[in-house]
Design a protein around this nucleic acid. Structure first.
Lengths: 218, 218
DNA sequence: ACTTAATATGAGTATTTACTCATAATTATA
DNA sequence: TATAATTATGAGTAAATACTCATATTAAGT
C-alpha cells in the first residue's frame, strides 16, 4: 500500500520490439484498471493480469506503482500541449474570429477531458504525486496560459493593460470548468453545447469589458 | 487498507458529555492527520494517537475510516451552506450593489477554501466516497446555485432569459477558481486581491452582456 | 454503598498489496 | 550452432493497516 522506496527510473529499458509492446500493453491496462478501480484499489497485480503479463514483467519496466501513474500523466501533458499548439495553428491559418477561436478552444479542452474523465481525475487528484511532477503540472499550466495569451493578443478588439492576469484567469477558468463538467457525465443538467456557449460568452464579455484597475463596472 | 465492510452508523452514540468531547477530539485529530498525511496515509491508528485516545475508542464512535471522512465532509457542507445564507442576508440588508455583492461572495468562498485547503482537497478528491455522499455534494451545489440566483435576480441591471444556466456557470466558476487558487498557496503568481478583482470583473461582464442565444458578440 | 450502564483500552488478527528474485524462455549475435 | 543478452515468469516475502474483542475503568442511577 504505502510506497516503500521511491524509484522512478526503470530497472531495464526496453530495447527489443516485443518489450516496447509490453510497455504499451501495461500502460493501456493501467489506464483501464485505474479507470475502473481508482488508484488505491488499482493494484499492480491487477494491472499485470489485465495486461496479460506477469507481475515480474511489470516491475522490469516500472520500478514502482507510482512510476506507472507518472508515465500516464506525462502522456496526458504531452497530448494537451500538442492539442493547444494545434489549435493555435488552426486559428492563425484559418483566420477565425475571436468567438470562433474561443469556441474551438473550449470545445477542444472539453473533449480532452471527456475522453477519460475518471482517469484524469484519478491521476490529478487521487494519486499522491512526487513534487517534481507537481512542478511539471504547474509549468505546463503557465505555458498554456502564455500560448493562449499569444493568440488572443492578435485580436485587435481586445486591448488590456494586464494580459498576464487576464489570460491566467481565462486558462484557469476553462481548465477548471471543462474538467468539472467532464468529470460528472451523468449529473449534467445543462447540455454540452449550451455549456460551451455560456463559457465562451463569459470569456468574451470578460475580454471586452473595460480593463482599468478599479472601475465600478456597475 | 481497502475497506472491509461498509458501515456508516456508529456502534454507539455518545450520550454522556465526556464521550461527546471524545468525538470532537477525534474529528479534530482526523483533520490534522489528514492534512499532514493525506487520506491513504492518514491511518486510523495515527488519528487515535493524535487524539490521545485508544484505537478501540475511535471505533466505538466511527465504524470505519470512511465514516470519519464523511463526518468531516458533512461539517464542511453545513458550514458552506451557512456562509452562503449569511452572505445573502448581509447583501439584502445592507443594500450592496452588484459589484460589492459579488466581491463579498468571491472573497467569502476564497476564505472558506483557504482555511484548510489541503483538507478540502483530500476530502473532496482524494477520498473514495460512497455514492450517497456524492449525491449530497451535487445537491448542495445546486442548492447554492439557486441561492445565488435568488440574490442576483434582485438586481435590476441584470436581465437574462436563462438564469438557470447563467447562475450554474457562475457558481461553478467561483467554486472551481477559488478552490484551485486556495489549493496551491505557494504557487500563486498573481496576488489574492487581484485575483478576486479579476473574477468579479469577469462575472459582472458576463451578467451584463447580451444574453440572446446565438449572438455574435464579436 | 451498590448495581448498572456507558466509556475507554490496546494487544492482537486477518487481510491486503507493493515488490523481489531465482529461474526459465526467447531473441540477438558470433 | 553456440553463446550472450534480453525478456518473461510467478510463487513468495515483508510490511502496512483497518478493525475486533475481551477486559478494565469511570460515571449514573438508586
Amino acid at each position: 500500500m504505502t510506497a516503500r522506496k521511491q524509484r522512478l527510473d526503470p530497472r531495464k529499458k526496453p530495447v527489443q520490439n516485443r518489450s516496447k509492446v509490453t510497455v504499451d500493453v501495461i500502460l493501456l491496462a493501467a489506464t483501464q484498471v485505474f479507470e475502473s478501480h481508482g488508484y488505491a484499489a488499482g493494484t499492480t497485480n491487477r494491472i499485470a493480469a489485465r495486461a496479460g503479463v506477469s507481475i515480474g514483467t511489470l516491475y522490469q519496466y516500472f520500478p514502482s506503482k507510482e512510476a506507472i501513474a507518472v508515465a500516464l500523466l506525462e502522456r496526458h501533458l504531452t497530448e494537451t500541449d500538442h492539442r493547444l499548439h494545434e489549435w493555435v495553428g488552426h486559428m492563425v491559418v484559418e483566420q477565425h474570429n475571436l468567438c470562433e477561436a474561443l469556441h474551438e478552444y473550449v470545445t477542444g479542452m472539453l473533449e480532452m477531458h471527456a475522453k477519460q474523465p475518471r482517469l484524469q481525475h484519478i491521476l490529478l487528484e487521487e494519486t499522491p504525486l512526487p513534487e517534481r511532477v507537481h512542478q511539471a503540472l504547474l509549468e505546463a499550466e503557465q505555458h498554456a496560459a502564455k500560448t493562449v495569451a499569444g493568440l488572443i493578443r492578435l485580436y485587435p478588439e481586445v486591448r488590456s493593460n494586464c494580459f498576464e492576469h487576464t489570460c491566467f484567469v481565462i486558462v484557469q477558468t476553462v481548465e477548471s470548468l471543462t474538467h468539472r463538467y467532464a468529470a460528472h457525465p451523468d449529473d449534467q443538467f445543462i447540455p454540452r453545447a449550451t455549456f460551451v456557449d455560456e463559457v465562451v460568452k463569459m470569456i468574451i464579455a470578460y475580454l471586452k469589458c473595460d480593463m482599468s484597475p478599479h472601475n465600478e463596472v456597475l
